[in-house]
Amino acid sequence: MFTIEHEFDATVVTLVDEGGTHLQEDVIVSALDDCVTIAQYDPVRRQENLVTLSMAQVADLRAALDLPEGMYRIVRKAGA
C-alpha cells in the first residue's frame, strides 16, 4: 500500500510494507524541486535514516530500473 500527498514544497509518497511476518518500517519519499529524500525509521537504533538523491541521481535510478545488468553512463544534452 502507498499514499501520495502534495504538500507546499514537496510531493510525499509513503510506502507501507504489507508483506509477510518480517515487515519493514514505512519508507517516506519526498520529491522536492532540487532533490529527492528517502527516509525510513530504524527501530534498533531508534533513529531515522535519510538518503538524499540529486535529480541527476533520480534520473539515473529511473533509467537503471529498465536496463539489464551492467555499467552505464547517461549523457545529458546541454540545457536538458
Rank of each mutant, 00 (worst) to 15 (best):
D60S: 02
V44R: 11
P43Q: 11
E48Y: 09
P68K: 00
V51E: 05
L65I: 02
A64I: 05
R62K: 06
E69R: 01
Q57I: 08
L61N: 02
A63C: 02
R46H: 10
N49W: 11
A64P: 09
A64S: 11
L53F: 05
V44T: 00
V58D: 13
S54Q: 03
S54W: 01
A63T: 01
D42A: 15
E69C: 06
A39G: 11
V44H: 01
A39Q: 14
L67I: 02
V58P: 11
L65A: 12
M55F: 11
A63F: 09
Q40S: 11
V58S: 12
D66L: 12
E48A: 08
Q47H: 01
A64E: 03
M55Y: 08
R45S: 12
Y41Q: 07
Q57K: 10
L61E: 01
A59K: 10
A56D: 15
D60P: 06
R46T: 15
P43K: 12
T52H: 09
D42R: 15
R45N: 15
R45T: 13
N49K: 10
N49S: 04
Q57F: 09
L67E: 01
L65S: 06
E69L: 10
M55G: 05
V51T: 02
L53N: 00
D42M: 14
A39W: 08
V51M: 05
L50W: 13
L65P: 00
Q47G: 06
L53C: 04
D66N: 13
V51N: 03
M55E: 10
T52M: 09
L50A: 03
V58W: 15
V44N: 05
Y41L: 02
P68I: 02
L53R: 05
L67M: 14
V51D: 03
D60Q: 03
D66Q: 11
L65D: 03
V58H: 14
R46G: 13
S54R: 02
Q47W: 00
L65C: 03
T52Q: 15
R45Y: 14
V51H: 06
A56E: 15
T52W: 09
V44C: 09
Y41D: 04
